[in-house]
Design a protein around this nucleic acid. Structure first.
Lengths: 342, 342
DNA sequence: GTGAAAGCGCTAACAC
DNA sequence: GTGTTAGCGCTTTCAC
């Protein structure tokens, strides 16, 4: 059995009777090597089971083919689905991933993290944590210091920052319009926590449609949840109380919708006959709720993929010193999925 | 503003009027530096906003403080919860994570992956993908070649391999015993796909308890699913047909249990009155099913944490050339959570 | 305590 | 085509 442990470019060179650089050339598929030499070197490489050391390559090339990924709340469905899109696209494009999960969604102590990535010479960074309150205040101060291509997921458009986001506004609009087209008159909304940018976008989408149809939106028509099923129950009962004539609810996510289902059953409200419900997220379970839940699928996997593609494009443009590397704001369109709850 | 981009140990040394080695000593908190020199060097470091280059350190030290993580099916709850445990523990212990997600659960082309990790000089590897069929056949051939501490999640005990696993057998046993203690006589089981080691363990746990109470287990008492809610429906109807007297079902995961709930409602079977149900996984939604689902929580987050702790212990033992670095087989005990479905 | 020299494994620039 | 030299940024002997 070949001793695999410590074969370097030097061992290959020696055994093949060439210099290290020639081996390096073969390794990098350069053209200026004779076919014969190339074949011999490749033979030796195979024989020694030689594998180039990526760390040494990174150091020497000043390029690591590694992307830094910042995520949070991995045990929730959205972030992990996004991450899944990121892993598959990165793999496809030949990049590896250095992963960091924030302890908390509104962590603002980002400098050490960015330094860590920089210290590991990542070629780019994907910031896949949600925008909450002012947890992006550091952007304009810190970003210029870092000098690594970076792309943000789901945040408001901002100068000089590349962003890929689900179009929450349009998703909420589409769902609300669906209610109206199907004759619902009193459409309520249960929001996610309103310090989340995404929650606010969904709320605005809902409001916009109502306003366009001449409905005056008032506080009794919506209630704020915190994403959890439990908060969905609470918000639903709140609405039943202050907006009893409601015949439809757009819910900020599927988990809260599940809470509604439970409450509705308890107080004897029929879904969808009396109240039509559409959620947001399309978690796998929602299809098997009773009744099956209509929802807005935000295409998070696609979101992750697009982020990787865009980031790598930027990285390569930067390498070629191309100008025109302008920040982009890319919207991923969600998809309205109608099932039996609406 | 300080130009932060390219300050090396050399810049610090020059500005402080010392040699690079002295700076390195300060960086590594060595004791053989005078307090005065140390203070001065630290001052310069702060002034230049110097950050050591981790890639260079990895290369030089032959130690990266990076762990390779192999996962699969991130968009499912189990794997992402495990990963979440891994990220938090690794962070706590000062290690970074290089993440790879397999395209498919039964991917067997593992050599390139392991080579990639090795090439990146990871200090250890966590194999967090499930054991399915013979997708571990490569272990004994390939592992000796890699020479990196590696720890596997959820697989059968095996010589010379370190493993951390949920105790699926005991989890299933506990649930089945609960049924019996509460007077159920005809306890069915819906398994996960039986090419999964975990599914088989759960099935054995169920069988064992039945056998111990003198019940002869036959094929009509169980049915195989594929983890999906849909397969849960199918398996349930299959059981209703071939084992109509059943008054309890242990279900391989919560999603399949959800499918059962839907089917049961359709055919008018009452849960838990007529049929008592316990699932497996404790997904966040299960508490809000109707009725709320009793389930076995496998403590996957803990699983991930223990894996990291154990792996890092091994890494450090290896560094100190300590013997006694014996492979361990660690079982994480799951927790039976009783709600209204049982 | 501190510095000089060598090396981690590889690539880039230049020579021949 | 191929080899030489230098260097990526840091650490590890080993002197002094």
């Amino acid at each position: 059995m070949i001793k695999n442990s410590k074969n370097t470019i030097y061992d290959v060179a020696e055994k093949a009777g060439v210099s290290r650089q020639t081996v390096s050339r073969v390794l990098n598929n350069r053209q200026d090597v004779s076919d014969e030499t190339r074949k011999r070197v490749k033979g030796i490489m195979a024989e020694l089971n030689y594998q180039p050391n990526a760390v040494a390559q990174s150091l020497s090339r000043q390029k690591s083919f590694l992307l830094g990924v910042v995520t949070v709340g991995l045990k929730f469905f959205g972030p992990s689905r996004t991450l899944s899109g990121i892993t598959s696209k990165a793999e496809e494009l030949g990049y590896g991933l250095l992963l960091k999960e924030l302890a908390s969604s509104n962590s603002t102590d980002v400098m050490p993290l960015l330094q860590w990535f920089k210290s590991h010479q990542v070629d780019g960074i994907i910031w896949a944590a949600p925008e909450i309150e002012d947890n992006r205040f550091w952007l304009k101060d810190i970003l210029p210091l870092i000098d690594i291509p970076i792309i943000f997921l789901t945040m408001e458009e901002q100068n000089n920052v590349s962003i890929v986001t689900t179009d929450n506004y349009n998703g909420a609009k589409a769902a609300t319009e669906y209610f109206i087209q199907h004759g619902r008159k009193n459409i309520a909304h249960i929001t996610g926590p309103l310090d989340w940018w995404e929650s606010r976008q969904r709320k605005i989408g809902w409001e916009t449609v109502l306003s366009e149809t001449g409905v005056q939106v008032t506080d009794r028509m919506w209630s704020e949840g915190n994403w959890s099923s439990k908060s969905g129950k609470t918000a639903f009962l709140d609405l039943m109380n202050k907006y009893p004539e409601m015949d439809a609810i757009l819910v900020g996510n599927d988990q809260m919708a599940l809470g509604i289902f439970q409450s509705a059953l308890e107080i004897g409200k029929k879904i969808p006959q009396e109240i039509s419900v559409i959620g947001f997220d399309d978690i796998p379970e929602s299809e098997f709720f009773t009744p099956s839940l209509s929802t807005v699928n935000p295409n998070q996997e696609e979101l992750g993929k697009v982020a990787v593609t865009e980031l790598i494009t930027q990285i390569e443009q930067k390498l070629e010193e191309k100008i025109g590397n302008e920040p982009k704001y890319i919207m991923i369109q969600p998809e309205l999925i109608i099932r039996k709850s609406s």
